[in-house]
Design a protein around this nucleic acid. Sequence first.
DNA 1: TTGATAGGCAAGTATCTACTTGCCTATGGT
DNA 2: ACCATAGGCAAGTAGATACTTGCCTATCAA
Lengths: 101, 101
Amino acid sequence: MVLVMAEDVFKALADPTRRRILDELVERDGQTLFEICTRLVTKHGLGLSRQAISQHLVVLESAGLVLSRRQGRYKFHDLNTEPLEHIVTRWLKPDAPENTP
Amino acid sequence: MVLVMAEDVFKALADPTRRRILDELVERDGQTLFEICTRLVTKHGLGLSRQAISQHLVVLESAGLVLSRRQGRYKFHDLNTEPLEHIVTRWLKPDAPENTP
DNA sequence: TTGATAGGCAAGTATCTACTTGCCTATGGT
DNA sequence: ACCATAGGCAAGTAGATACTTGCCTATCAA
């Protein structure tokens, strides 16, 4: 497993296009780059090139928010919500029961 | 109440210095700009000007993560964790977590 | 093989963002 | 009144970031 800093997670979430990509993967997991591209363009009206999406996926992977598995000439992308569950509790007061360590 | 977009919250959290400021406010609420400045410098070794911190506080306020109350020539800053509780659940599956492996 | 598909690499650009510097206003103490 | 403190405003700058364009490799199907 690759060591993922909270830094990377926050930076990955800072971009609206990357958040859209996560939205896409929540709706349908295991999409390829081209699938994500076409769905972002058609459903959200984003006029972005394939490379732009590809670079966003690299950022999301570095943050651990997306896991990819190669299969032939296809590369499928899966959402990984595990990094999301820790980053926010950092500032939540320990009075809430779900935040107590 | 000011309308706060999720966009602003994510952008506010993207900067490490702003996250440090939130850490400071978790530890001690109601600090002034100068208090935050000195504590960031002494405790975290950040060599930042007062204006830098001031501008960060503006961003945090716009995101709704910090609430400020003016009192004479002092302006006290309080942490508001309310925006943090919604932004992450966006990508967590709506059904019960951790029960479907 | 050839050709089409899926994806990656690298350089260039344009915009954004964090930070500084200098000057300004307002409040409180003496 | 004076002056120090607390903070804000605005312009400028250096670096980061999102996006494009062009070319390249790899896989599969005919």
